[in-house]
């Protein structure tokens, strides 16, 4: 697919550069020649339905999954392989952090928020005093001292997602990968977390790779977007352009599928079968 070809003239300051990523599971091409660039401090959305390859792409970027082919550069350096020693390995691990849909599963149920942050900081920055940094992180995500002493189960969904974000920020990553990170939250809490993420990006210049099925969320938090279907990128561009003037039939289908007054589910169902 020509749209997916590596772009030229990418400034070498890109937070993330993904080129020709492929991954096959059995007979399924989960990720097929996927390329995109996330500028430093930028926010890129990946949209598509379940099974379109979004999460596999994210997992490869984070290093939780290997690619059959392709390349992932973070701040111009190869992500996989070549790390010498523990310090360098940790430094690489730091560069890309991930926040999942259900923070509950990624938090230790027996560890308080503050202790979890301290543990992460100790691992990555041994020897330093972390009290001030912990306070700063909690402030940054809008958690008070009461929440700091709480165990994950004593927190609401929105608070837990804030903890997960604080922990990811603790190691000062270049890229934050958010996989359906606000999908399980109520609209009012979702709005709080989305605003928080916008504030953090403004302040820290961390780049976001935002994986979501919600086009309203994409419009709200990303500058650029790629649309994936069956493992491939079918359309890519500035978010406003793609959403206002979609070129690919699948992008149009996704847009029409968003419920709103006057919505015609019958037509969408027919369009889906035709595609």
């Amino acid at each position: 697919m020509s749209e997916a070809a590596p772009r030229t003239a990418v400034p070498d300051t890109a937070a993330l550069e993904v080129t020709g990523l492929c991954r096959t599971f059995g007979a399924v091409r989960a990720v097929d020649e996927v390329s995109f660039t996330l500028p430093a401090g930028g926010s890129l959305g990946i949209v598509g339905e379940s099974g379109s390859g979004k999460t596999t792409t994210a997992r490869i970027v984070v290093g939780l999954e290997r690619a059959d082919a392709g390349r992932v550069l973070v701040k111009g350096r190869a992500r996989a392989g070549g790390a010498r020693g523990r310090a360098e390995r940790l430094a690489r691990a730091r560069e890309v952090q991930m926040v999942f849909q259900d923070p509950y599963l990624s938090l230790d149920p027996r560890t308080s928020v503050e202790a979890a942050l301290r543990e992460t900081l100790r691992l990555h920055f041994p020897g330093a005093d972390h009290q001030a940094r912990i306070k700063e992180l909690l402030d940054q995500v809008g958690l008070g001292t009461r929440a700091a002493e709480a165990l994950p189960r004593q927190l609401s969904g929105g608070q837990r997602q804030r903890v997960a974000i604080a922990r990811a920020l603790a190691v000062q990553p270049a890229v934050l990968v958010l996989d359906e990170a606000v999908a399980a939250l109520d609209v009012s809490v979702q709005a709080q977390v989305l605003n928080l993420l916008a504030d953090i990006r403004e302040r820290t210049g961390i780049g976001y790779l935002f994986i979501t099925h919600d086009l309203g969320v994409v419009r709200c938090v990303t500058d650029e977007v790629v649309v994936m279907r069956h493992g491939r990128i079918v359309e890519a561009g500035p978010t406003a352009t793609v959403l206002d003037d979609p070129q690919h039939a699948y992008t149009r289908l996704l847009l029409e599928s968003v419920p709103r007054p006057g919505w015609d589910p019958d037509r969408i169902a027919a369009a889906r079968r035709a595609l």
């Binding site: 709005a191 919600d214 709200c220």
Partner: peptide, 19 residues
């Protein structure tokens, strides 16, 4: 107004504080 919409304004959402 706290729902991210395709036809709403862009930028920060009007979130409801608290729980």
């Amino acid at each position: 107004s706290s729902t991210p919409r395709l036809d709403g304004p862009t930028g920060r959402l009007a979130a409801i504080d608290g729980q």
